[in-house]
Design a protein around this nucleic acid. Structure first.
Lengths: 206, 206
DNA sequence: GCCAAAATAGAACGACCGTTCTATCTTGAG
DNA sequence: CTCAAGATAGAACGGTCGTTCTATTTTGGC
């Protein structure tokens, strides 16, 4: 029967919204039941345990993230434009109420081993890898210097994102967005090839 | 009577250790009572409410942070050495079990208004300001370029710290420390004056 | 339209939470 | 040494948590 799957998906959509604001473990079955109009036990039956619900929420978040950040960026031209698109779509993603789900969940789960944490680690690694891959392409396109370490730049871009989250959402710093963009631009500039066409673009065969 | 203050301080020291691992709200009165050997009510009487305990824990953390990070750095020579010292002492501070208290607590409290959050915001602002001030001095000493925006560099250094925390504690990335140091060095280099003595050091009168 | 299977509801559970109350120790000033 | 004040303990409270159990309703293949 397909009814079960449909309500399960509806629950997860609502659960993700809630968890984005109150955190993964702040998400309670009672509150989620109230928010969806189901009974506690009726909702519970869809997941079997709170832990399984948390895993499902993390996976739901990852799926929405792919849809809203990764996929649109992949439609941009290879190289620096795509790196920039990843960053900008992340900025938009972080504007939803509660900020970036992964930033909040990371701090919450990093000292709580178990399947929810594992799922979140996987999602974050995928995200960092996506940045590093885009950077790698930008290097091979000659947009960034040939001696660029893609993983290093991904690490640094990730830091700008985290700082952005903290300064805007937590410190309520008015200039947060401006600082964020400036930091990102400075970062790209420091890795950019002096002349965009100085390096011969790597041919597809190599 | 001084006995009360002494045990209160002992409780806070233990509370900070605990909160560093399980988070500010993961710290429960029952567990803390067990950890200190007191009864729930006996411990509770020292603070009057859970919220007041949380505020006290944040203030305890801030005090230890000043002692272990700020004060030693202030003993270093003005300018870049002091900026570097702030960073390195923070690295050491983040090595304790649970990582950097403030990084964890920030994500936990950023959507939970109230006195604990306010206390934490103040502590973080003090920290960012301390970095920015050290940077400002480094500029006036001619160690960093004159057009350096100290708040911007503080924002970026903060990002490196956050990224460091995530990559080492959460992602368990083996190269986290190396990436952290490289990111910091790259940052300083990008702001460093080409010739350390090119700028005339601002005389004390100006 | 029937009827097993699936989906949902409702009540109850034990555990732990923060908090309150009362009683009992312990302290230290006079 | 006395004795009020302070510090601590113990039991109990209402509330919420995740979870389980048992009904009841709803679904959809036949």
């Amino acid at each position: 029967m397909a009814k079960g799957e449909a309500t399960r998906q509806a629950i997860l959509a609502r659960a993700f919204e809630l968890a984005n604001v109150v955190g993964v473990s702040g998400l309670t079955i009672g509150r989620l039941a109230e928010a969806t109009g189901l009974s506690k036990s009726g909702l519970f039956a869809h997941f079997g345990s709170k832990e399984a619900l948390e895993v499902a929420v993390v996976e739901e978040a990852a799926q929405q993230f792919v849809q809203e950040v990764m996929v649109p960026a992949l439609r941009e031209p290879r190289g620096e434009p795509r790196v920039r698109a990843l960053f900008e779509h992340w900025l938009a993603w972080g504007q939803r109420p509660g900020g970036c789900f992964f930033v909040g969940a990371t701090a919450e789960l990093d000292d709580r081993p178990g399947p929810p944490r594992d799922a979140l680690v996987q999602a974050c690694k995928d995200w960092v890898d996506a940045i590093a891959t885009a950077v790698r392409i930008a290097v091979s396109e000659g947009h960034l210097r040939a001696d660029t370490d893609p993983d290093q730049l991904a690490f640094e871009i990730y830091g700008v994102m985290l700082s952005s989250h903290t300064f805007s959402r937590f410190l309520h710093e008015p200039a947060a967005l401006e600082r964020t963009c400036r930091a990102f631009e400075r970062l790209l500039a420091s890795y950019r090839a002096a002349d965009p066409r100085a390096r011969t673009p790597t041919p597809p065969t190599s």
